[in-house]
Design a protein around this nucleic acid. Structure first.
Length: 256
DNA sequence: ATGGTGGCACCGCCA
């Protein structure tokens, strides 16, 4: 089984990138974040011949998540359990008896912002969500844009950016508490090097060429899945295109 | 260096 995650930064402007990537790589499942399209504007026509089932939830201007799967998904739900549910930040579904939770975690804006408090709270609510709906022994994958770099090797110039909303003690602890549910970072299972990123800010001049990036996108697996994970790689394909995205595809394979 | 770019919808906001 091959699965992937990609922050698309508008599904309408990058539908071709996604459909080409699906055709070339044929993953069993692709999780997408930041579709930036309300449901009535989702470009379903662009994927009509793709062979994929598509589940999506969006809103005007911001956020929005989607899941593409070859097999038909079951048990589809959106959002967290309590208000605000943030339906356009979380999709849960089941494919081939494996459970998936695709999240676009709030970015947090700045450490002194109410949105930063909201981000920390979001991780707490997510931990409760996992404990309510799953057991660590379930076949469960948590993937998406988690907006946290957990270690110095996950971010460029770690000393300089330490304290920012995606790399500071508070968020590292917050995501760690969710990991303690029983998740393994599949990328780190297979790759120990530093400088392995999935996000490069547009606003940094030549940030991609200079590899001034962050590892913010993850494929997390409970033990029954992690034990079967044979590979996890960063595919920088969209960065080579005429219209790059600021994130890349993260791809994991499982012997299942 | 305290900016920069990109996307969407709107007369800025968010990343």
């Amino acid at each position: 089984m091959k699965i992937a995650t990609f922050n698309v930064n508008s599904i309408r402007s990058r539908a071709t990138i996604v459909s080409d990537w699906l055709a070339k790589n044929k993953p069993d499942l692709l999780a997408i974040q930041e579709t930036k399209a309300q449901d009535s504007d989702f470009p379903l026509d662009e994927f009509a011949d793709s062979g994929y089932n598509i589940v999506f939830k969006g809103e005007k201007r911001y956020n929005g998540v989607a899941v593409f799967s070859l097999a038909k998904p079951d048990n589809i739900t959106y959002g967290l359990d309590d208000e605000p549910t943030d339906d356009s930040r979380l999709i849960r579904l089941t494919v081939n008896d494996v459970h998936f939770v695709n999240t676009y975690v709030p970015q947090g804006t700045s450490p002194d912002s109410d949105r930063f408090t909201y981000k920390l709270e979001w991780f707490k609510r997510l931990k409760k969500y996992f404990k309510k709906h799953f057991k660590p022994t379930d076949k469960l994958i948590w993937l998406g844009d988690l907006n946290v770099a957990m270690e110095a090797r996950d971010v460029h110039n770690a000393d300089q950016v330490f304290g920012s909303v995606c790399y500071c003690p508070e968020v590292i602890k917050a995501i760690g508490d969710v990991m303690d549910f029983g998740f393994t970072d599949t990328f780190r299972m297979h790759n120990q090097e530093d400088g392995q990123y999935t996000f490069w800010d547009y606003r940094i001049p030549n940030g991609f060429k200079r590899n001034m990036g962050w590892r913010l996108d993850y494929i997390m697996a409970t033990k029954p899945m992690a034990d079967r994970c044979t590979r996890c790689i960063v595919d920088k394909a969209p960065r080579q295109l005429e219209k790059p995205s600021d994130h890349t595809f993260l791809v994991a394979e499982f012997d299942i």
